[in-house]
Design a protein around this nucleic acid. Structure first.
Lengths: 177, 177
DNA sequence: GCATATGGTTTTATGATGCAACCACACAAG
DNA sequence: CTTGTGTGGTTGCATCATAAAACCATATGC
């Protein structure tokens, strides 16, 4: 059920040496692993928490700053990075103040399953689950949501062992040949 | 040169002061948000990639090291942290070599949905999806898996907007003890 | 114009990360 | 038993990111 020896896929993650300062932070920008690519965008300490607050409706710099209790410079850097990655975008106004707001793009809202997965992992495995303050519920019924489930094309519930990785079929030059 | 005046670190910000070196990395250990609690354990650059490789069957220090291309000291630190968090555990042997292996615990295998969510987010929103090399497929049929879906207790498919957070009902002072 | 709140940037300090070098141990050869 | 090599890891140092505070710029109100 599991190939213990060499796998062909993904043989050798290399860090992208940028110019000459290759002691950077091992960027995963050019990596072929989609997990690594996600982490490149939202794999740092604060990004997912900022996104989480944004999903809950926060929009203003000061809201994030006071809610998350983080330093303003860090927040500014994270917001800029999230905007650069197309996860947030700045909207010029909303409440009259000529300041700007940070709102989630579709890509940003698309992180919701990631946050749910993180939440459910805590709920399932945390050593002190009693310290978890909130529950994600179905808004309509007020009942806890089900666990995320992975299904096959035909609807069968899949565990990790029932899945495997395949190479993408066609590197596809450019149109059909 | 000009020594700046005494730094008053105890400014009253929220951060979890551990012992006395409170300029650490803003640990989320005591946070009540389950997302933050997850990130505390696996929210750094390497942990999820190590877990990913472990899910694919890697067990040995050298396997991780050559596969991920990371420095050995970083790997050692991450492995230790993952063991401390109950995500990996060390098994004394397997192939005769008197060395140890790192195998996933149930808690570690429980991260699978997180990795799937990260993967699917990349697949859906990455700017250069053609660089993604692998596809997660149903092992039996060889067909791509469906997107993770969040459902209500009664099976209704839920979007983020159809969910909300509720406070945990009972803080429960250790009942019946 | 001046006080204050908001929204950042700059400065400075510390911790984390990255890499190389080194060390400890196991195993094999001589 | 000694040497050699591969594995598994630690130590040192350079560099980078992060953190906190101070500072600055723009808005808004009086």
């Amino acid at each position: 059920m599991m190939q213990p020896h060499k796998r062909v896929i993904d043989a050798g993650i290399r860090q992208t040496q940028r110019d000459e300062t290759m002691v950077k932070r091992t960027s995963f920008e050019g990596d072929s692993c989609p997990v690594a690519r996600s982490l490149e965008a939202i794999g740092d300490w604060w990004s997912l928490l900022i996104i989480r607050e944004a999903l809950l409706g926060l929009r203003r710099f000061g809201e994030f700053q006071s809610k998350l209790g983080m330093a303003k410079n860090i927040l500014a850097a994270r917001l800029r990075s999230l905007v650069d990655h197309g996860i947030l975008e700045t909207a010029p106004a909303s409440d009259g103040s000529a300041y700007q707001e940070y709102v989630l793009t579709p890509k940003g809202r698309g992180t919701f399953p990631i946050l749910v997965a993180l939440r459910q992992w805590s709920e399932a495995f945390d050593d002190r689950p009693e310290e978890i303050a909130t529950i994600l519920v179905d808004r309509e019924k007020g009942r806890p949501v089900k666990k995320l489930e992975l299904r096959a094309e035909d609807g069968r519930l899949l565990t990790q062992a029932e899945t495997t990785l395949k190479l993408r079929p066609a590197p596809r030059r450019r149109s059909a040949g």
